[in-house]
Amino acid sequence: MRFSHILAGLALSASLVGVAHARDQISIVGSSTVYPFATIVAEKFGQSSGFKTPVIESTGTGGGMKLFCAGIGLEHPDITNASRAMKSGEAELCASNGVEFQEFIVGNDGLAFSNSNASANFEISIAHIAAALAAELPGGGKTNISNAAMSANMLTSWAEVDAFVANMGGASAGLPDQPISIMIPPPTSGTRDAMGSLFMKAGWKKLGLDGDGYKNLREDGKAIEMGENDALIIEKLVAGPEMFGIFGYSFFDQNRDKVQASVVDGVELNFDNIASYEYPGARPLFFYVKKQHMGVVPGMKEFISEFVSEKAMGMDGYLFPAGLVPLAEDSFAEQVEARNSL
């Protein structure tokens, strides 16, 4: 029997049972940062609405967009979570497949730049973070001539980063002579994109550098790319007191007994500083709803009403203890308006 026969057999049995299925619960994909919040809402919704509990996959923002924009129909997800706004390329993909969507902002989050509680707390600037992570720096970071040609980043310790930032005209932060080792999110993650724009791009500018050199991260083992598993980063931070990790605020909040967040640009990572966007790593979190699925999948409108509500997203809402920073009032009002217009 050839493999193709086996496949054909499988396909036959598949076509007998599979095709005529109707989905009676909402299917959600997307960001692992929004996942903990979306799952809380989904569970409450399932308990109190009489609809089935939505099924949520944590695929990363990029992976979620790809699935979400793949088309209309019950085999495609209804909602995708995102820890950054939809990119133009993704919007084009959606458009080319006829997908119409509505964007919602869930709340705010802050990128924690953290290390183990057992180590010294860092007071750092985004210029330091950018200099520590960029693939190339003027003169490899070892010279004080800011217009030196770009070459591979040679900085190996935080003290060297500090000296380089000072040479570039930034303020020295008095960082110790400790080797650089930073765990960063994977490229499919929205947290990675947020890191790219909030830390790398802004930090690059602060260093007084032009161009898009901030886009390339060093690949010499100083920046360690992790999977979509923030719990693992926490474990590694505890095991390696010299390491740093970048992840969302809720993870930091749940693990305060193990890790601490560095003060970035003189601003501490906490609720107030994220809400006011004083913290440089503050960013909004999103979810996108497929308009064509409204009224097709049971419970869509009710689920969105549950999510976009004072009792979930608000100051006294149940997402607050999980680490979601509520939106400002006017922004929240906009979300409610968008919800009502659906």
């Binding site: 496949l7 396909a11 598949a14 076509s15 049972v17 599979g18 095709v19 299925h21 989905r23 299917s27 099924v55 996959e57 129909g73 085999e75 997800p77």
Partner: peptide, 16 residues
Amino acid sequence: SVFLGFFNMPRSAPLV
């Protein structure tokens, strides 16, 4: 690509 993409079988299902 085959079961979900071609045969449109349900996502997340134990069948697939």
